[in-house]
Design a protein around this nucleic acid. Structure first.
Length: 316
DNA sequence: AATCTATCCAACCGCTTTTAA
DNA sequence: GTTAAAAGCGGTTGGATAGAT
């Protein structure tokens, strides 16, 4: 038997909020702040549970909400972040100022999912949907986005690519590494651009790579205190450099932002990186669970390196 | 005009994590 | 260290609305 919610237990009001209730909640929070949500209904005279009040505030009444339709840039960013984070809506929403996790989730389920499917992309895996005809074609390359609109021109790849990083243990970026280096058959940027994650670009735009994964207290509201993360996001999207996204000319620019991060890039030495801590981390992580598949080297040659944004920030 | 269907989105549910006593 | 309450989160539901028949 399903447990009854707190609203049922206390016979509190449920369903849509009336303007009067909104008014009560807003004026209460304006005066006192929300403090403890469980006490808000009592103090404000609302016959709602604290949880409901919290949700209403976060998703609807908060003054910093943007609302309205999502822009193309926002849509691209959501797709990009979802390919890395999976259904971590709060983390995705944290990168979209003025958007709530609920809003992003709804947008994903009602619009983006459909669009990706129309374009032959499985929204769950970001892989091309299985197509009998397509499967018989030559490419062994596995891409995150099969859509020509979304993938910039890249050198055709020689090797199969890793699955996208969906298994989200804190922004997983699983870089398959054959031996101590990027597979010889594949340039680093070529490999990364084509399917996984372009660290060149990330480094270029983010430098120290402020965490895109922020401890989200209330979705996007945290962004105001995360200028670096916000700027990083803006730089990635604004410069049209989401590795597999073309955002159009109107989004290009912001060269000064790029410059400010460029220095950090030089400090990154991939050989050091691969020989060092990340390789250790890869060893610790153990099995790949089929995330990265390489031709030639065989399974034993493949080392997955998982790092989160904190790891990236340590590259400097 | 009436009915049916699809879509969108606000809100709920229940589980997990965090915090405080 | 334990426990209960609060907060956070993601999945799901249900009502409103638009569009199709």
């Amino acid at each position: 038997m399903a447990k009854r919610s707190c609203c049922h237990k206390k016979k509190l009001r449920r369903g849509l909020w009336s303007p009067e209730e909104d008014e009560k909640l807003m004026s209460h929070i304006a005066k006192y702040g929300h403090g403890c949500w469980s006490s808000v209904p009592k103090l404000s005279g609302l016959e709602r549970c604290g949880k409901s009040c919290r949700l209403r505030w976060i998703n609807y009444l908060r003054p910093d909400l943007k609302r309205g339709t999502f822009s193309q840039e926002e849509e691209d960013l959501i797709i990009h972040l979802h390919s890395m984070l999976g259904n971590k809506w709060s983390q995705i929403a944290a990168q979209l100022p003025g958007r709530t996790d609920n809003e992003v989730k709804n947008f994903w389920n009602s619009y983006i999912k459909k669009r990706l499917r129309e374009r032959g992309i499985d929204p769950a895996t970001h892989q091309p949907l299985p197509e009998p005809a397509a499967a018989a074609t030559t490419s062994s390359c596995r891409v995150v986005f099969g859509d020509a609109d979304l993938i910039p021109t890249t050198t055709p790849l020689q090797a199969p690519l890793a699955e996208p990083m969906l298994d989200g243990v804190k922004l997983p970026l699983d870089l398959p590494i054959a031996g101590n280096a990027v597979p010889s058959s594949l340039s680093r940027s070529g490999y990364l651009q084509a399917g996984c994650f372009n660290l060149d670009v990330l480094q270029q735009h983010c430098g120290s790579m402020p965490a895109p994964v922020v401890p989200s207290a209330s979705s996007s509201s945290t962004l105001t205190s995360m200028p670096d993360a916000e700027q990083c996001t803006a730089n990635i999207a604004g410069a049209g450099y989401l590795p597999w996204l073309e955002l159009g000319q109107n989004t290009l620019g912001e060269a000064s932002h790029v410059d400010s991060y460029a220095g950090a890039l030089d400090e990154l030495r991939w050989s050091e990186y691969f020989d060092g801590a990340f390789q250790d981390a890869a060893c610790q992580q153990g099995a790949l669970q089929g995330q990265c598949v390489y031709g030639g080297g065989g399974k034993d040659d493949v080392v997955a390196v998982q790092f989160d944004v904190h790891g990236l920030s340590n590259w400097r």
